[in-house]
Design a protein around this nucleic acid. Structure first.
Lengths: 142, 142
DNA sequence: ATCAGTAATTGGAATAATTCTTGATATTGA
DNA sequence: TCAATATCAAGAATTATTCCAATTACTGAT
């Protein structure tokens, strides 16, 4: 058993380097928060949360860390309309559903074996580097 | 023949009201530009272009007009990463492919009969109000 | 282990897109 | 025509993000 007390989650072990990115203390803590808070926090959310462990970290550093992690494909950046960017450690190809009543963002997986290319008419020769699928709506009161 | 001179495109007739929105002179001209420039202009692009016909229009008014048109479902707002919003008069369900080499944005249609719901695992009860599909990439040098 | 070179961090200033505010103008309906 | 309402213009304000300059931390070679 790793953690006896559900209030205190077991520490996530983070290596010194991921995908060629040196994992400094700040990057480790930022990444750890994304692993723990699966609710797509903004840079500012991460900033407030990370100060528990690194009281002197600056917001600029949080932005730097998030950008470095995104650049190295360790996390994903998610944008809804013009709101603050949010960040997501789920690297599998998926979309996001923004519940406009509760504000909650749900990861939306593809059906097994399905892909965007199945439904879209891509122009010939197009090489897709990145895909963003965002849905906005609500839940029928069930 | 409507227009003899290809330099001067035929005016697009715009009614006094669309979908319950009063089409003021400013809204008409903003909408006209979106109909003519199918290259997904930003608010500022529209602003510079519309000044030919309404020299006193303000950027705030362009934003107001675009927002009113979006709210009434007359045009769509398209966001790429954190860049300025772009606007699009194509109301059919479609995505956007951003060519990162040329900067050009291409409308991407669905295959006939296909829909996003075919490939995504939507949570039960989810009612989708709006969908945004954005692709980023380039063309293989063919 | 030391040192030089490089990368990362900080804190605050700067930027840029967008929204807000206020007063003027225009439009509508009675 | 008049009052009520909507729209517009101009500039100020807001806000997320980036930039900058100075400090600090790390790395690899000696």
């Amino acid at each position: 058993m790793v953690s006896q007390n559900p209030e205190i989650p077991a520490e996530i072990e983070i290596p010194d380097e991921i995908s060629g990115l040196r994992m400094t203390r700040q990057r480790q803590e930022v990444y750890r928060i994304l692993q723990q808070e699966r609710n797509h926090p903004t840079a500012n959310d991460v900033f407030m949360r990370v100060k528990d462990r690194l009281p002197n970290i600056s917001l600029a550093t949080v932005y730097n860390c998030l950008e470095a992690l995104v650049q190295h494909g360790i996390i994903r950046q998610v944008n809804f309309e013009r709101e603050s960017s949010r960040y997501c450690p789920n690297l599998s190809e998926h979309g996001h559903f923004h519940d406009e009543v509760t504000g909650v963002i749900h990861d939306i997986d593809f059906k097994p074996g399905a892909s965007l290319v199945d439904v879209l008419n891509l122009p010939p020769g197009a090489v897709i580097e990145d895909v963003e699928i965002t849905l906005r709506g609500k839940f029928a009161n069930s």
